[in-house]
Amino acid sequence: MGKIEQNKEKKRRAILEAAQHVFLSEGYILASMDKIADQAQVTKQTVYRYFSSKIDLFQATLMHMGSDSEDNFFDHLKKPDTKDALEGFGVSFIHAHLSSNHLSTFRLLVAESAKAPEITSTFFSVGPNETDTPLAVFFTDRLGLAEPDTAVRLWTSMLLGFRDCVLMGMPRPSDQQIEQHVKAATELLLANTAKQQA
């Protein structure tokens, strides 16, 4: 990558990090391209050069936050043992969804989606789709499910139970509680899959 490309990437990253800060601290509706430009220490014209609209920047910010996650839970799906792969994925998936950034994003969606419905459709075009597609492939290849979508949705919904509790003000679960929850959810999934194939 040449120096010009490096500078462009550095500026783009600065805008995304500024946008993340502004969106999560002020909300989508109150966030403005002016505030994000000030936070990134660039001009508003520069922000628009990289992102054509606020919703385009919001989508890019969600993708940036996802790619910055320390643990890529999809790596677990490469494990040869199916149960280990699912449990490893599940634990990492829950930790990612209990991160402060994810919880703040979800609170933003709940608080502002009625006035700005485009943020919900944007979120679901980025997050769940990126999760569901690789899981559907895994469920087809490893579990032999011809139509895996319902199983994927049910299993990930079970995994997200802790997030819903934390959003409602309940204490964050311990690592041991998370592991036990994932094992129970995975056992249900595998038992139901075996029953369907019997």
Rank of each mutant, 00 (worst) to 15 (best):
M1R: 12
M1F: 09
E5G: 14
K10G: 09
R13Y: 04
I15H: 04
L16R: 06
A19E: 06
H21Y: 10
H21V: 08
S25L: 08
G27W: 00
I29R: 15
A37D: 02
Q39C: 07
Q39L: 01
A40D: 05
T43A: 13
T43Y: 09
K44Q: 13
K44M: 13
T46R: 08
T46I: 14
R49T: 11
Y50E: 11
S53I: 07
K54C: 07
F58M: 03
T61G: 06
T61A: 03
L62Y: 04
H64G: 10
G66R: 15
N72H: 05
D75S: 15
P80K: 07
T82W: 00
E87Y: 08
G88H: 04
V91P: 01
F93P: 03
I94M: 09
A96V: 06
L98W: 01
S99R: 00
N101F: 15
L103M: 08
T105W: 13
R107H: 11
V110H: 02
T122K: 08
T122C: 11
F123H: 09
F124M: 14
S125W: 14
S125G: 10
V126S: 01
N129R: 08
N129L: 07
T131W: 14
D132W: 00
P134C: 10
F139W: 03
T140Q: 13
T140F: 13
T140L: 03
L143H: 01
G144P: 00
E147K: 11
E147G: 08
D149N: 09
D149E: 11
D149V: 10
D149Q: 12
T150K: 14
T150L: 14
V152S: 05
V152D: 04
R153K: 11
R153W: 05
W155N: 01
M158I: 06
M158T: 11
L159P: 01
L160K: 01
G161H: 11
F162T: 10
F162W: 04
C165L: 12
C165D: 12
M168G: 13
M170L: 09
D175A: 09
Q176E: 10
Q176G: 04
Q177E: 09
A184D: 14
T186W: 01
E187N: 08
L189Y: 00
L189Q: 01
L189C: 02
N192M: 12
